[in-house]
Design a binder for these strands. Structure first.
Lengths: 127, 127
DNA sequence: GATTAACTGCAACTCAGTTGCATTAATTAA
DNA sequence: TTAATTAATGCAACTGAGTTGCAGTTAATC
């Protein structure tokens, strides 16, 4: 658990996550917050947040980094093993509650798993 | 099905895939083949191979692009929905035969899924 | 209020992947 | 076998996400 000072930049980032149900890409965060802070700062605050279990990160379908706020994580116990869904049309990413079963492989030690579902979200389905 | 001419570069790339059981990252391919061809050529040939169902691509744990030869794919019918395993220690990626069940989400249309398992491979387990 | 260490901005960098364009070479028709 | 066509290639320059070093700033502690 690192020391996180409550700077204006930290508050700004926190409030973005408060307001959002879905995951947000770093690219999007940097763009949204470019008036308020440097992109380096965005990257560094996200690192700290992740270490402290405030957010978790993962890669979207295009290899870009996404962040979402954690529901019940801490710096000791990071449960980000839930699947994510990304919409092909609008690019939106949702965290899914549903568990999934991780296949086992003989003679391998599996430590984590990333599952990304790709398709069309609710809005894009009905358009 | 695009037109694929049998050039020296194409032959060279094909033989790399023939010799390899595991997936190979593009970075690695570019490095291995730098005496034989330009990196742009590597990228372009891989694109063509993928369109023609000769190889399939996916992203590794660090967001880098990996390729592996397909077992039973064609340009019409691309089955690359198998999971992949990447070793944390040595970075190696293996294609897994095991199927996995794709969770369904209400009001969403799921078109594909990427499952990446991360841990330690057989060699790294015994070291 | 002074001290200190965390934090930030900036500029420059790294590195995977892409693009435009001129040149080369594999295929097809003659 | 040669000529014509067009896919394929090399090269250089670019793009864009993410990183790094360092000097300056600011939140927290005493």
């Amino acid at each position: 658990m690192g020391v996180v000072r409550k700077t204006k930049s930290v508050e700004a980032l926190l409030s973005v996550f408060e307001q959002s149900q879905n995951a947000i890409s770093v690219v999007d965060l940097v763009e949204r917050l470019k008036e308020d802070m440097n992109k380096t700062t965005v990257y560094r605050i996200l690192d700290r947040f992740e270490k402290d279990g405030i957010v978790h990160s993962f890669l979207g379908k295009d290899g870009l980094k996404w962040y979402a706020k954690c529901r019940s994580c801490s710096s000791k116990n990071h449960i980000d093993a839930h699947p994510h869904f990304q919409c092909k049309k609008c690019g939106k990413v949702e965290c899914l509650q549903t568990d999934f079963s991780i296949p086992s492989i003989s003679n391998h030690k599996i430590e984590s798993a990333q599952l990304l579902l790709i398709g069309q979200c609710e809005e894009c389905c009905s358009n």
